[in-house]
Design a protein around this nucleic acid. Structure first.
Lengths: 232, 232
DNA sequence: TGTACATCAGTGAACGCGCGTTCACTGATGTAC
DNA sequence: TGTACATCAGTGAACGCGCGTTCACTGATGTAC
């Protein structure tokens, strides 16, 4: 290995460490991530960070993309671990994986799905990673339809403008998926993140104590609405 | 009117004005509300604010309570304006009112339902106002049941720990409501805020352009799940 | 293999800005006799 | 009705802290001949 690539490797490790420290900071400061604070924790002077990230916002962006990818990978892996033909099992596995990831990484979750960071607008590179979780969910529906395990609801129930929007969206997320089924998939996706939001941001605090069971039951209700077959 | 109460009235007006200015600030700074910024906008020196609020956090709390009350009132008024026996109409009206309020007051909505403010914990006075929207929603279900317009799903579908949690919760939100119906009401409530979150925080940006129709349709799906009678 | 040069990481000081909160104070407004 | 006193709103300076970013710099590490 040439000396230059040692330098490159050390550099890559530094970048990773900065991101790791920054992730820890997110937990206490929320999105008010402080470059100086990160530098302090690394035992460097604050300006040294600029060797690795050109600005605070770029560091934030890197964290956001990594978080989306981690969440997306968790959801995809969970889905992949379930029997292909057990749609309900796949749905539950994917939803649980999202929730588990969020509970294990609450600050990163908040960065992705909480209030927008003031003064920060996410660049376009975040779009792809952000689409992984919903893509995985609707893939379950598409597979089910292809295997005739599932029937699409009548499309006539959709108002025309909604149908048109969903048709375009289907091209991106799940080509060929009937609009009425995509609408239900979106409902499930919305519900999933509504549930996680409420749990994580304290909305269940004096209300629901058996969180796992509650989550599973709410998820099952959505599976019913979508029409996923399987044991209730 | 005695002179003293003139002073009291002026004081009350100042408090209102401070809150109004602070609300404007929320729109740009998010929850990083700055007392000095508010004071500047009012043409006062920053320390003068302390005549009216003992600390920044108390001002935040006042804004939060007012926002919850405004949202709660909007939802209640919308529900009250619909035919008592048209459960589906009431449900839609309440949901639309919540969304409308959120779209008109995005920063305040984010304060209530977005990521927690770092370093701030909401005091107990916020609990009551925060419960108004879900209380209104489940009241629709309770009314429907009382008027035999609605039947409760079989309670056997609920895992026991969830049933117990929901039984306690029913005592607070809607005494006597069967747990399985409350579970569906909670699903609707979760969905409602999931929908608003996604719309407000940009999750629908390159995906759904007919927001009103999409929202109504998603809300209708939840009404189906709950079993609300009425025209689909 | 050894030397001259280029690259790069990290330092330390500084700029210009922001913040919440305290404190002694001035003046105006109200109250009591 | 007039005067002495108390209350209160708002001022201005200060404390002590934080932040992102720039810039000239030192030394170490790598590269080319």
């Amino acid at each position: 290995m040439p000396a230059s690539s040692i330098r490159a490797r050390v550099r890559a490790e530094m970048i990773d460490e900065i991101k790791a420290v920054a992730r820890r900071h997110l937990a206490t400061d929320g999105a008010n991530l402080s470059l100086r604070g990160v530098a302090r924790d690394m035992g460097m002077v604050s300006s040294a960070i600029y060797r690795y990230f050109p600005s605070r916002d770029e560091l934030l962006t890197a964290l956001i993309i990594e978080a989306y990818d981690a969440l997306g990978a968790a959801v995809e892996t969970a889905d992949a671990g379930a029997d292909r033909r057990d749609l309900r099992g796949r749905w539950h596995a994917a939803c649980r994986a999202a929730r588990d990831w969020a509970l294990r990484h609450p600050a990163e979750y908040a960065l992705l799905y909480g209030s927008p960071v003031p003064g920060y607008t996410a660049p376009d590179d975040t779009i792809g990673p952000a689409q992984r979780p919903p893509t995985t969910l609707v893939a379950i529906l598409r597979d089910g339809l292809a295997a005739s395990l599932l029937t699409a609801p009548p499309g006539g129930e959709l108002p025309e403008p909604v149908r048109a929007d969903l048709a375009e969206l289907a091209d991106v997320l799940a080509p060929g998926l009937p609009e009425a089924l995509l609408a239900r998939g979106m409902a499930g996706w919305t519900q999933l993140f509504g549930l996680i939001n409420f749990e994580l941001f304290g909305r269940l605090n004096r209300a629901v104590s058996h969180r796992d069971e509650y989550f599973d039951h709410q998820t099952a209700l959505m599976a019913d609405l979508i029409g996923l077959p399987g044991p209730t």
